[in-house]
Amino acid sequence: MRLIVVSIFLLVSIILSSAFIVSESSSPEDLIIGKWEEVSWEYERINNHYGTFDSEFDEHQQSEIRQNLLVHEAEIWHFEKGGKLSLTNTDQTKRHVQWTAKGRGHILELNYEDAFLEDYHIQDITKDSMVIHFNFDLQVRGIVKLTFAKLQEKNA
């Protein structure tokens, strides 16, 4: 009988303490709110080009990849509460899409007006920086890494 009580107690304590941490900590959904500036595009795994290691994309590679994506040339990503995302391009034109966080907060899903969905894997997110990968498959990490820096409110 004591064993049953102890096992139930242990199970309930694990569930309650995890639930407490979840409710008290900042979720990726909270951390993502604000304005983010695109800092770099990189290969996830460094490639060897002519004996030198170069992980950054050049302009041509970026535009080639972006042909298949709807987020074109967006420099500033402004995530708002309620799932609204404003993408500001270099020429200051704006585009609005819906965003949602899925899974355990590791998937960023962008929903366009024409019902097109785009998924990114949130690799790392802190108050100041965010790294996302293009999400092609759940078991395989994305091939392209985008790094963002959070803009301070006064600069934004």
Binding site: L11, S18, I21, S25, S26
Partner: peptide, 25 residues
């Protein structure tokens, strides 16, 4: 997630695993 220090995500996954365990129990 624990090794990366992502406590929120770790707690979420721990909660999920515990719920599967709880269901079986």
């Amino acid at each position: 997630e624990i090794s990366k220090g992502n406590w929120y995500q770790a707690a979420v996954v721990l909660l999920w695993v515990s719920l599967f365990l709880g269901g079986s129990f």
